[in-house]
Simulated assay, not measured.
Amino acid sequence: MTINIGLTGWGDHPDIHEQDTGSRHKLSSYAAHFPVVELDSCFYSIMSPEQIRNWDHQTPNNFSFVVKAYQAFTGHDRQTYTRKEIKSMFQSFQQQINPLIESGKLNTILFQFPPWFDLRRKHIQRLKFIREQFQSYPIAIEFRNRSWYQEHIKADTINFLKEDEWIHTICDEPQAGQASIPVVPEITHDKQSLIRFHGRNVYGWNQSGQENWREVRFLYNYNDEELKSWRDRVQNLSQQVEQLTILFNNNSGHHAYANAKRFQHLLGINYTGLNAKQIDLFSDQ
């Protein structure tokens, strides 16, 4: 049983990077603090394997990446593609992440679906199609529409994910209507599970499309009681899987780093095998 705690992205964390001399060192210095990171860049574009390999080389052997699936796969771009076009993009995406497969650093591919991806037959068919194209890959799913977790439906949703070997993403997020989901602490894959902490900013969550909405949405600082309320839940979940990955996404106000470190302390976790910290390079020892 392994619990890996990290952040979504490595570039915007002043508490980590104040010792950096340049942006090229940011992932390397991040990997001195955490054993996992969410790679968001792949959501916005399909990148070259060389770029992925470069990032791979900046991290230690026991590091892993949660790769966010390209936005065309989840429908965020609101474009329509032929089956041939989307299959071609799937292949390009898979080639892109090959370096992580080769190094054993692919944690999972995260398919985060938009709020309008609700429970309906065509969306279930889309999930089955994706699973068929990614048969040999660990893939996680995150819903952003509450219809998948209606009381009379929730058990069927969980069973569907189990049958198709999706890794269920458990979320802590604002309870802000249909475009948010409740905490559903269910494991659907015996090897892995994923938890993402988005904060609890109800006002910000519903500001999609407004100016600076991304910054407002994830502006939240978890207090100790909120983190402690997750401690027993995480310890229980970790007994059901080989690897539990926890990502803090509440970084609009740069709170994710401190929250993740505090939660690591509450769980009594001390990571080994990370990169050397930058400050150690200038110490007198």
Results as ranks from 00 to 15, higher is better:
residue 135 Q to A: 13
residue 151 E to N: 14
residue 103 S to D: 07
residue 102 E to F: 01
residue 111 F to W: 03
residue 107 N to S: 14
residue 130 I to T: 05
residue 128 K to C: 06
residue 116 W to R: 10
residue 143 F to E: 04
residue 117 F to E: 13
residue 149 Y to T: 09
residue 134 F to W: 10
residue 115 P to N: 13
residue 126 R to M: 07
residue 149 Y to F: 15
residue 149 Y to V: 07
residue 127 L to E: 01
residue 117 F to A: 09
residue 138 P to N: 12
residue 98 N to G: 00
residue 150 Q to F: 02
residue 151 E to K: 10
residue 110 L to F: 02
residue 121 R to N: 13
residue 131 R to Y: 09
residue 137 Y to W: 13
residue 134 F to G: 07
residue 115 P to E: 12
residue 102 E to P: 01
residue 103 S to A: 13
residue 142 E to Y: 00
residue 135 Q to I: 11
residue 107 N to V: 03
residue 151 E to H: 14
residue 155 A to F: 06
residue 125 Q to S: 08
residue 123 H to C: 04
residue 111 F to H: 01
residue 132 E to Q: 12
residue 123 H to D: 12
residue 105 K to C: 08
residue 98 N to V: 05
residue 139 I to W: 04
residue 155 A to Q: 14
residue 109 I to E: 04
residue 105 K to H: 03
residue 149 Y to G: 03
residue 98 N to A: 11
residue 126 R to K: 09
residue 100 L to Y: 08
residue 102 E to K: 12
residue 110 L to M: 00
residue 112 Q to H: 04
residue 124 I to D: 01
residue 116 W to F: 15
residue 116 W to M: 08
residue 102 E to S: 13
residue 137 Y to M: 14
residue 146 R to Q: 07
residue 129 F to S: 05
residue 117 F to P: 09
residue 115 P to T: 12
residue 139 I to M: 07
residue 117 F to V: 13
residue 109 I to A: 01
residue 112 Q to T: 02
residue 109 I to Q: 00
residue 115 P to V: 13
residue 126 R to Q: 09
residue 109 I to C: 01
residue 125 Q to G: 02
residue 111 F to D: 00
residue 150 Q to G: 02
residue 112 Q to L: 04
residue 145 N to L: 04
residue 150 Q to R: 05
residue 128 K to P: 00
residue 124 I to K: 06
residue 141 I to R: 03
residue 149 Y to C: 03
residue 115 P to S: 14
residue 128 K to D: 01
residue 109 I to V: 10
residue 135 Q to R: 07
residue 114 P to E: 10
residue 150 Q to C: 02
residue 100 L to V: 11
residue 115 P to I: 08
residue 115 P to Y: 14
residue 113 F to T: 14
residue 122 K to V: 13
residue 111 F to V: 04
residue 120 R to P: 00
residue 131 R to D: 05
residue 111 F to P: 02
residue 135 Q to P: 01
residue 141 I to H: 03
residue 140 A to R: 05
residue 138 P to V: 12
residue 137 Y to F: 15
residue 146 R to Y: 06
residue 144 R to P: 11
residue 110 L to T: 00
residue 106 L to M: 07
residue 144 R to V: 11
residue 118 D to P: 00
residue 122 K to F: 07
residue 113 F to M: 13
residue 148 W to P: 04
residue 111 F to Q: 03
residue 116 W to A: 13
residue 140 A to E: 07
residue 110 L to N: 01
residue 137 Y to K: 10
residue 128 K to Y: 00
residue 145 N to R: 08
residue 99 P to R: 06
residue 107 N to Y: 10
residue 136 S to E: 15
residue 113 F to V: 15
residue 134 F to A: 09
residue 145 N to V: 05
residue 119 L to S: 06
residue 109 I to T: 02
residue 155 A to D: 15
residue 135 Q to D: 09
residue 153 I to K: 09
residue 111 F to I: 02
residue 130 I to A: 00
residue 121 R to M: 12
residue 128 K to T: 06
residue 122 K to H: 11
residue 135 Q to T: 12
residue 113 F to Q: 06
residue 117 F to R: 07
residue 109 I to L: 02
residue 140 A to F: 05
residue 100 L to K: 11
residue 100 L to M: 08
residue 142 E to P: 05
residue 134 F to P: 06
residue 106 L to K: 11
residue 101 I to F: 09
residue 100 L to S: 08
residue 113 F to Y: 14
residue 124 I to N: 02
residue 120 R to W: 03
residue 121 R to S: 10
residue 124 I to M: 06
residue 106 L to N: 07
residue 118 D to E: 15
residue 136 S to F: 06
